[in-house]
Amino acid sequence: MKQKIVIKVAMYHDKCRSKALKIAVGGSGVESAALTGEGKDQVEVVGDGIDSVKLTRRLRKKVARAELVSVAEAKPAESKADDAPAPPPVMGFLPPPCYGLPQNYHCCEVVEPMYGSPCTIL
């Protein structure tokens, strides 16, 4: 049974947010994790067989104050794309691999000095 878990975590900057997402994704059975809420302060985890209490404790220990908000059965997403026909493929211009770089630019050529390093600080 897929379940959707929402945990509110006190996150004040981007480093805390990325750390919380890494911890949430690292759990067993996790299929997806996302930041939700008004101030991106809630971690929403969807998966099968996730231990919500263990995940909350881990977030408390590693990140900051965490509170389990809800645990519910995940509803399958209803896609309206199946009803509508797919748009035809668009044929267009593909830029060359080094688009925007000078034509004489060589990124793989390395020239080593003949008598050692020219750096005298070493």
Rank of each mutant, 00 (worst) to 15 (best):
M1K: 08
K2S: 12
K2Q: 15
Q3C: 06
V6L: 13
I7W: 07
I7G: 04
K8Q: 15
K8I: 00
V9Q: 02
A10M: 12
A10T: 13
M11P: 00
H13Y: 11
K15A: 14
S18H: 08
S18W: 06
K19G: 04
K19T: 08
A20W: 03
A20F: 01
L21P: 01
I23D: 03
G26H: 03
G26K: 00
V30P: 04
L35C: 04
T36D: 13
G37M: 07
E38H: 06
E38G: 12
G39F: 12
G39Q: 14
E44V: 04
E44S: 06
G47C: 01
D48H: 11
S52M: 05
V53D: 13
L55N: 06
L59F: 03
L59W: 02
K62H: 04
V63Q: 09
A64H: 11
A66V: 04
A66Q: 06
L68M: 13
L68P: 05
V71G: 04
A74L: 09
P76S: 10
A77R: 07
K80L: 15
K80E: 15
A81F: 10
D82N: 13
A84H: 12
P85I: 14
P85G: 08
P85E: 09
A86T: 12
P88A: 15
P88E: 15
P89Y: 13
P89D: 15
P89L: 10
P89I: 07
P89Q: 14
P89A: 13
M91L: 15
L94D: 13
P96D: 03
P97K: 05
L101G: 01
P102F: 02
P102G: 03
P102T: 00
Q103E: 03
N104Y: 02
Y105E: 03
Y105T: 11
H106Q: 10
C107Q: 01
C108M: 08
V111P: 02
G116R: 01
G116Q: 08
G116T: 08
G116D: 06
S117H: 08
T120V: 13
